[in-house]
C-alpha cells in the first residue's frame, strides 16, 4: 500500500512540506506524489534524494507522478 499525496496547484513550499510529513510518518515504504508544476517536481525530487529516497518520475497527462521509495 503506498501513500498518495496530491500536491497539484499548491504554492512553494507546500508540496515538499506535505511529502516530508508523510516521509516522517511512515519512515520507509512507497509514496506517490502528484504535482503539476516543474518547480514542485524539482523541489520534491531534490528533497527526496537528499533524504535518500529513490525517485521515479512519469508524466500523467498534464501532471507528473513522482514515485518515491525507501
Amino acid at each position: 500500500m503506498s501513500e498518495i499525496v496530491d500536491a497539484r496547484g499548491l504554492a512553494c513550499p507546500e508540496p515538499v512540506l506535505r511529502v516530508k510529513n508523510v516521509m516522517d510518518k511512515i519512515g520507509c515504504g512507497e509514496i506517490k506524489v502528484l504535482v503539476n508544476t516543474v518547480t514542485a517536481k524539482e523541489n520534491v525530487s531534490r528533497m527526496a534524494k537528499n533524504q535518500k529516497w529513490s525517485v521515479d518520475i512519469s508524466e500523467e497527462g498534464d501532471d507528473w507522478l513522482i514515485t518515491l521509495n525507501r
Partner: peptide
Amino acid sequence: RLCLIGGIRDLILFRE
C-alpha cells in the same frame, strides 16, 4: 527558480 525568501525558508524548514 531563484528565490531569496525560499532560500532562507528552506534552510529553516528542511536544512536545504
